[in-house]
Design a protein around this nucleic acid. Sequence first.
DNA 1: GCTAGGCTTCCGCTCAGCGGAAGCAGTGCT
DNA 2: AGCACTGCTTCCGCTGAGCGGAAGCCTAGC
Lengths: 256, 256
Amino acid sequence: MAGNTSAHRSAGSGVVERVLALLSAFDERHRRLTLTELAGRADLPVPTTHRLVGQLVQGGALVRQADGAYVVGRRLWDVGLLAPVQTGLREVAAPFLADVHAATLATVHLAIRDGDRALYLDRLSGRASVPVVSTVGSRLPLHTTGVGKVLLAHAPGEVRKAALATLTRATPHTITHPTRLQDQLRRVVREGYATTVEEMTLGACSVAVPVRLGGLGEGDVVAAVGAVVPSLRRDRARLVTALQVAAQGIGRSLVR
Amino acid sequence: MAGNTSAHRSAGSGVVERVLALLSAFDERHRRLTLTELAGRADLPVPTTHRLVGQLVQGGALVRQADGAYVVGRRLWDVGLLAPVQTGLREVAAPFLADVHAATLATVHLAIRDGDRALYLDRLSGRASVPVVSTVGSRLPLHTTGVGKVLLAHAPGEVRKAALATLTRATPHTITHPTRLQDQLRRVVREGYATTVEEMTLGACSVAVPVRLGGLGEGDVVAAVGAVVPSLRRDRARLVTALQVAAQGIGRSLVR
DNA sequence: GCTAGGCTTCCGCTCAGCGGAAGCAGTGCT
DNA sequence: AGCACTGCTTCCGCTGAGCGGAAGCCTAGC
């Protein structure tokens, strides 16, 4: 039951490490990479990259497009979907998210905290033309998003401290002053929901509430659900209510 | 602009090939595998598997659970989501699928044909307790599912011929008689929708319609949308209408 | 205690992998 | 046209990373 407990070389000079480095060279902002970019981002010599990538293409893990650029292949898509990334949470939450979406027509998100980022597990995009940067699998800063603020407000002290120390700016409205954000986070805990106003993307506002194990009350905060809309003027109360209903439903279903 | 045109060894004895074999050992029915299972399914010696898998775990591509079993890791989930698997189609279709779901409360599917299978690109699960086997990334037979029948009815002749030659049985209601299925497929083309009655799963019926490039009319069939419900008695007409509206909307949006 | 099955470690051989260097397009500038 | 430049591809001889049989280890079951 112990298992694979080799001290092993931690160095990154094995083929496996290199392959993983190549795969990790892709991210949301780099879905298409040329050979040289790939080599650069994985920190490998070009000929080596060429050979490895060739094999990955042959195996269907990558695909080479007509113009020579490489993209992630369907084979990896298949395998990736099998990862038990909060499968339970996502399955349980899906219908509740759909309810919120149906009732509000907003873009609805389910996110958890992954280190110092909000990891988006699911998204239902609204029809309204609100600019939304997140997709499933995105990781966005905690202090610029609705779900992020909720998750941050309920994160352990050291996470919060670290986050407050590095408040990067995304738009002119991003809150970069630690004290001001800290005040907001206290309010988030007290009032039970968070909002953002064009802090991540111009033209997009959001509301989010925590999902607590067992529903309302003092259960651990395991996730957050949020909605993105063009403006909060009209709908804040309505959205908060809808999200809270969904969050309670999700939390209650999780225990069972 | 040519590129990676090496004849190369097609044999499967490189580290890359082995790694891919290990990853492909996972599928929907085998999300958790022990070392020995992994070795068996990838056709590799156990010690070799042990070493490679150890490195994959170290790189976060796999995760070893407390009981020793391996599952796909979050790192691969991340990368897999970046695959351009019909990204355009999925994004365009999402809001329309949500509409159908909201209107019918049924489980709604978007699928394309991938060889001799229906590949499920998206799913909105209904609240009703209908047994549904498909998840995003599933591949199911073409002749046992609603979306599959639609895709098969509009597939090239040779695909249809091959499919009719191997009608595997999933339930007592599965249609395994070629002539009978062929008649049904003709009707699907004529009437514009397909149905199944407990042919894939007992207790589940489905309706599906084609998505044509440009909407209604003679555009190529590029996908199918379908709904799963406990029974067709009450809702058939309503479902067909809802699905057709969505399919037209998707098809029209695809061209723009 | 004994057996069986599966996991882990060892270790010496060898061949797959390596990557510098050179060749080969395309492209843009003069 | 000529030239410079950038990025992709191929070559090839050296070498150490990978290999996997064998042995050891641990747990579970009898």
